[in-house]
Design a binder for these strands. Structure first.
Lengths: 229, 229
DNA sequence: GATTGTGAAAGCGTTCACAGCC
DNA sequence: GGCTGTGAACGCTTTCACAATC
């Protein structure tokens, strides 16, 4: 048997960049490019070439010195490493504004994350259809998770309801959660969570704007700089 | 005069946590808590107490040894540092699923980021109302940005349109951009951008799920090529 | 000649551990 | 006694720089 070596651990920072490389490589492939250098990929990704090479080196030595990387093969390897060789159905909890947008956003299904179901506590929302998926009651969660073999849950509820949503998802058997509610979730060990908080992102931008405008309490709306792309 | 010293630079990692502390402190304040220890705040934020103390130390020495931090004062200081002493109106480019959800999401305005306008290229969408804001044509962007003194733009367009949206925002005078499109934006130096990419988040979760379920499937080195991104 | 793969150095961020202060 | 503030240690990430390879 071939040396099935010990499980490589890919650094978090690298894992978060692999999806970006993957998308760019896909686009290049579609344009007929079949070989690419770390320098070019770095340019497309807006990072440094050494970083690209180090990142890709964690996958194995799939480049050719003096030449570059074969696009199709690299796409295959990254997809394999990210577990994208098959679909991962997701269930969305919360059928409000955001839940609707997520369900209606085609990008999910296209990229291998079909919406297996969307649930809400509100009986008035149950039965309505959004993004081609009928809203079901949150009590149906265990059944949806089991029959559709869902591992990933998305929380799109108001903050107040988020912890309950997480508890229900975990109980139903979900092991990864993407949380859009502005709440720190409490989950059992081994459950993977990621958080996307729009207000936090805006507040980070606000910090930089505030610095730019001459510090605390600075003047508003001073001269804009025109610039070109 | 008090030593208004050279501009403190707060580490990025800290800046990204301050909004979280701020929200938690606000909640504690609402519940009548007026003093809090780093340990308690750390527990609420799901981080280590030393990290909280180090983070807060970048704001200055606003705690009291043996006692803790006065909630109201800390809220004030964090808000000041993040530039949240006044509102930052934002303009949203793209009135599709996501743009609608963002405009309709009350959380923006509540947290100091009122939607000053939402624009789209599609004449069919112009004139419709979403989240209390009338959709205007993207050509009106410069006017909206100037009259409403907008510094922050939000891109909620499809990927194809995102770079053009960024160019227009920058030209109109916006200096910070929150980008929801799965695209690496090219912007002039000095323009701050942040990216939120749902597919990337899901793919990171997929990576962890894939490892959990016994890792990369089977033998290495069978090299089939799968297409698509 | 070109470009990868990678040790080594440099830079950041986190955590420890304890002096300093209430 | 309790808790903050922080230097120092540690670990992770980025970048450099160059030998290895095509």
């Amino acid at each position: 048997m071939a040396p099935e070596r010990t499980r490589r651990r890919i650094p978090d920072a690298t894992v978060s960049r692999l999806p970006v490389y993957l998308r760019l490589l896909g686009e290049q492939g579609d344009e007929g490019v079949d070989s690419i250098s770390s320098e070019r990929l770095a340019e497309l990704a807006g990072v440094n070439a050494a970083k690209v090479r180090k990142d890709l080196s964690y996958l194995g030595s799939y480049g050719t010195r003096g030449v570059g990387y074969e696009v199709a093969y690299l796409v295959y390897q990254i997809r394999r490493e990210l577990g994208l060789t098959h679909d991962w159905p997701v269930v969305i909890v919360g059928a409000g504004n955001l839940g609707q947008a997520l369900a209606g956003y085609g990008g999910f299904g296209e990229r291998g994350f079909p919406v297996a179901g969307i649930v809400d506590v509100d009986d008035n929302k149950v039965g309505t259809v959004m993004g081609g998926v009928r809203v079901r009651h949150i009590d149906d969660l265990p059944q949806i998770v089991q029959t559709k073999r869902v591992n990933i849950g998305v929380i799109a509820t108001p903050g107040m309801a988020a912890q309950d949503a997480a508890d229900r998802l975990v109980k139903a058997g979900v092991t990864s959660i993407l949380n859009f509610a502005p709440v720190v979730l409490n989950v059992p060990h081994g459950i993977e969570t990621r958080k996307v908080d729009l207000a936090v992102e805006l507040q980070i931008l606000s910090y930089h704007e505030q610095r730019r405008s001459g510090g605390v309490g600075g003047a508003v709306g001073s001269g804009p700089r025109s610039a070109t792309a």
